[in-house]
Design a protein around this nucleic acid. Structure first.
Lengths: 212, 212
DNA sequence: GAGGATCCATGCGTGGATCCTG
DNA sequence: CAGGATCCACGCATGGATCCTC
């Protein structure tokens, strides 16, 4: 947390320099760059997929791009959608809940008028999933996963879900995975991810900072 | 087959040059180099894991290192061992049989006194699994797979099997996979592969070339 | 605005095999 | 000698997310 608080107000150029990195021209070809820089800054083993330090602590790290008004500009990826359902339909055991139980949110300036290297990190927020938000997430997740298990995946659009939505998550739309079809048969479909809508992350930020 | 026959007598230097490649100093750090060069020479998409041309034809390609006497110097890797057994114990459906049903063998000189770049490819042999050899392979496979399924994997050493043996197959001995333990529980163990002993490949070469 | 599409880094597994001690 | 250990290449999946048209 000491390291996380120290990030507040630092520019991307500053953080990149600390870690001997050169910022990319823009984020079009390095979409995850900032998130990975924060990982390094906080002592997570850079690029270590299996065991970032935060998972040992039970803490998920998320950077969140905010506009000049402090509101989130993008949805937040949570995890992949299990397309073969089998893992049970119990919210308490779901990856979504496990990922969101405790999150260290790091806001970062993302207003287009600020040059990339001059954008600053904000105040870190160590947050735990609150009961009212969890109730809605749970309903979303149960409804979505029921459709997945019943083979209605193709009928799910990003419009389903209040806080949680399902959207494609892949290198491109040619990527395919096996899933359950309408009549229980195996079908090929694009891989999907769970995402948090900005209305969700906006609430979180609003509760803990003074924001519109 | 025209391309395969044309390889006979070519040196590794020659084949590498054709494909714009530079031979490694030795094979210690490039153990698969020659096999992959042959793949390219025969028009298999270089490095394409899923669908080499030969698999479309139902043909497996194997290079086989031979000493100055023409006898194989190394065992031949076939495929990984399914450690969770579940795929059934029917030889006819096994990956080992599918891989070995039709093989294009390409002998290559491997006598230590010949410098790597001057070693030559031999005459290609398009071979089909013969009934007498298959019978022994089948027995080996059934005995080994039964042990795997019964959780006796740790008791299998490379000494089991007449023609087919099970040996570790991994980047190193720290690599682990889930398998079935003695009492049916899940255990972690090193990944294994099926290998053909040299007595097997020696017989094949002997039947089709005049060899000791 | 946001749904659908896409992009980079990197770990892991498989396929190509040979190495190297006891 | 040969059983057990190891090495490189590369495809694929996942985790980091933002892009970019309707």
């Amino acid at each position: 947390m000491a390291r996380a608080r120290e990030l507040a107000g630092r520019t991307l150029a500053e953080l990149a320099h600390r870690h001997g990195q050169t910022p990319p021209e823009d984020l079009r070809r390095a979409k995850g760059w900032f998130g990975q820089l924060i990982e390094e800054s906080l002592g997570a083993t850079a690029g270590s997929l299996a065991e970032p330090d935060f998972q040992r602590l039970g803490i998920e790290l998320k950077t969140i791009p905010v506009g000049s008004d402090g509101r989130p500009k993008e949805s937040t990826y949570v995890c992949t959608v299990p397309l073969t359902g089998g893992d049970g339909l119990v919210w308490e055991d779901s990856w979504v809940r496990r990922k969101l139980q405790r999150v260290l949110w790091i806001p970062v300036e993302a207003a287009p008028e600020i040059p990339l290297t001059e954008r600053r990190a904000g105040s870190a927020l160590l947050w735990e999933l609150e009961p009212d938000l969890e109730a809605t997430l749970r309903t979303d997740w149960e409804e979505l996963m029921e459709m997945v298990c019943l083979g209605q995946l193709e009928r799910i659009s990003a419009r389903h879900g209040t806080y949680l939505q399902i959207r494609p998550k892949a290198a491109n739309s040619r990527a395919l995975r096996w899933a359950v079809g309408e009549t229980g048969e195996r079908i090929l479909t694009n891989p999907r991810g769970f995402y948090l809508r900005t209305v969700f992350t906006r609430q979180i930020l609003r509760r803990h900072y003074a924001l519109p």
